[in-house]
Each structure stands twice: as structure tokens, then as C-alpha cells.
Write a protein that binds this DNA or RNA. Structure first.
Lengths: 187, 187
DNA sequence: GTTAGCATGTAAGGAGTTACATGATTTT
DNA sequence: AAAATCATGTAACTCCTTACATGCTAAC
């Protein structure tokens, strides 16, 4: 039984991360999720509101009733804020626990919250992502070598473009890794 | 009623496209789907086999029983081949009917089968994809200008990387478009 | 006063994965 | 003889979108 209905971990994580900044209501959370983070390009209310309900039930966020005197206050909005347990859970996931810190989507979200982690954690995630991409590159190169004859010009161009994109991301990661390494130690 | 339970259009399209090459059985289709096409990075049998069953029911593929005398024949495999109706449907989708020819995933699959289309269709899809990406770029630039102060260095780096990736893909498309335009006309 | 945008939600369904179940054939 | 890989499938479940339903507030 224990931790039964917990899932949608990535969305939870992203919401907690945004609430770290400041309390927010659903409508605004969705806008931020769709613009700021790389993943969640088209997140709908049908996902977000049930997620918020679950975060409430788990105790990771709480309802902060909107002050009526708030400047230019509109209709009653439900403002959510992080609880201590929520902060704790966020830190735990941010450090790389939970799955998917180097997936395409998971990585973007983790990266977006790098400011709340230590250099050690950042290095671990950047390097994990890099080796994930290098595995991908190895597969691409291997199969494109094997399929050299079978493939027409368009298929080949597509594979080549995918390969170059992955190579580009590896170089980007390498820059970030050496930047982290050469950063002044926090002592 | 009519066309009730038809969906999963993109997977259908990809399978028909691969079968255009030659008849194949499920296991091999899955391998090709996962390597050759950009989308379907981790397609599972749980998606593929039900899809094949539906394609059979719709009449777009037919079962071709494996010749027993076939060189080094293994166990009885179910080999699928395109029907005339299947070819017709494929052509129809390949020309840009049906949704998603310029989605991230849809575009890759359409592109992979460009060899079976006319230059006119290819240009239409390449240009559609380009304007899709330019919309995306406009959104990214607008929001990153608005958030200049709020964003920390990591969020900014992520947005910048996304922007550069999109710019790179636009340049790639532009090369392909001018290549199509300057190709010798087929008269 | 009507349109557009703000704000919150629910119900139904779609597209896929995971894990399971089974067995043949090839390689070591 | 064991392990890997080939080969086909099913059941349960997950996560998400679409479409709907509702009503407030600002701008034109």
C-alpha cells in the first residue's frame, strides 16, 4: 500500500520548483510552465488542476487564501504555496533522486532549477546527460553505418541532422561542465 | 458511425511507409521504427501489435504467410504486406492530408518518406515546418525579452539553447528548400 | 453591451508504456 | 545445457489532451 497513487512526478517537481519562487495560482502556473520550462509546451488545465489537488493532499503545498486588499485584486483565486515538506521533496528530486534526470524532458526541468542546487549536483546531472547523449550518438552512428546502402538521400539527411543535433548538445554540455568546474569554490 | 475507431494515425502511417519497402513481420518493423525514424524512439510491442491488428481490420495490410522454403526459415512469423488500399492511404497522408505534418514528430516521419512524394509536396511540407518553427522562435524571443530580469543564468542559458536549436533547424530547412527548388524539373 | 482574457474545474477518451506470459531458435 | 535473441501477444495502468461547463473582469 504505502505510497499508492503518486505519479506524474515530473509535473509535481516543476510545480514545486515554480512555487519556490513565490506563491501562485493555477492559471499563472500553467503560463509559466508553458513558457519558462522547455518541457510542458502544451500543458492543459486538465493535467494541472488535478495535479494541484494531489499536491495539496500529499501536503507538499497549502492553500494561501488571497488577501482581499491585494492591489487590483480580481476574483477569488486559489493561491498555492510550498510547505516545508514540499521544499524537502523538491530538494530531494532536484539532487537527482527519482527517475529521469537525464531524459529529454526531465533534464530540461532539472536544469531550469539548477540555481537551487550545489555545484556537485549540477556536475553529476550534466555529466549524466552527456553520457546519455553519447550512448544515443553511438547508436545513431552504428545504425547509419549499417544502413548506408539501404537508405535514400532523405532518410540519410534526417539521420545526419539528428546526429549533428546531438553533437551540438554534447558540446553545449561540455561548455557548461567546464564552467562549473572552473567556478570559484564556495569557501 | 462510419470511421469509428481509427486513431494513432502517425504510427499507422509509419508502418505503411516501411511496408512500402518490403513485406515485414512485427519484430522487424519495431526495430526499423526505433532506429530509422526520428520519432518512435522507444516504441513497444504493446503499441505495435494492436496497431497491426487494426491495420489488418481496416484492410490496409494483409497477412502474407511465410514461405516454408524461405532461406534459413525460422519459426512461423506473421509477415504483413501492403494492400492497394493501404498504398492509397499512405499516399494520401504523405501528401500532407491528415494532421501533424509539421509537428516535431509528424515532420520527421513525413520527411523520412519524402522519396515517395513529388517535389511540390516536399516543398509544401518543408515550408510548413519552417513557418511552424518561426512561430516558435517568435514566442521564445518575446517571452525571453519579457523575462530578462526575472530569469537566473541557468534559465536564460536553457532558453538560449532552445532558441539556437530552432534557428539551426530553420537554416537546415532553408538549405533543403533551395535544394528542392534548384533540382532539375522532371520534364 | 459584447468580446477577449482571466480563472477554475470535470468527464471522457486517446496513445502509449510496463510487466507479464509464452515459446522457438541460435549461440556460447 | 544455459543464455541470448527472435517472435508474438495481453492486461493493467499512466499520463495527458480535448471538449465541455461555469462565471468573473477589463477593454473596446
Amino acid at each position: 500500500m504505502a505510497r499508492s497513487t503518486r505519479r506524474a512526478d515530473l509535473l509535481d517537481f516543476a510545480v514545486l520548483g515554480l512555487l519556490h519562487e513565490s506563491p501562485m495560482h493555477g492559471y499563472e502556473l500553467r503560463k509559466r510552465l508553458n513558457t519558462a520550462l522547455g518541457a510542458f509546451r502544451a500543458l492543459s488545465y486538465g493535467s494541472l488542476y488535478p495535479c494541484l489537488r494531489e499536491l495539496l493532499a500529499t501536503g507538499w503545498v497549502s492553500e494561501a487564501s488571497q488577501r482581499p486588499g491585494h492591489a487590483g485584486s480580481r476574483r477569488a483565486r486559489i493561491v498555492y504555496e510550498l510547505t516545508a515538506a514540499g521544499k524537502e521533496h523538491f530538494q530531494c528530486v532536484a539532487e537527482g533522486a527519482g527517475p529521469s534526470a537525464w531524459d529529454d524532458d526531465g533534464f530540461d526541468v532539472h536544469f531550469a532549477f539548477f540555481a537551487r542546487t550545489t555545484a556537485e549536483v549540477r556536475l553529476r546531472i550534466l555529466e549524466g546527460r552527456r553520457s546519455r547523449l553519447e550512448e544515443r550518438l553511438a547508436t545513431i552512428r552504428e545504425t547509419s553505418a549499417r544502413n548506408r546502402e539501404r537508405a535514400d538521400a532523405y532518410t540519410a539527411a534526417l539521420q545526419r541532422h539528428g546526429e549533428e543535433s546531438a553533437e551540438r548538445e554534447v558540446r553545449w554540455l561540455e561548455e557548461l561542465i567546464s564552467a562549473e568546474r572552473s567556478a570559484p569554490p564556495p569557501v
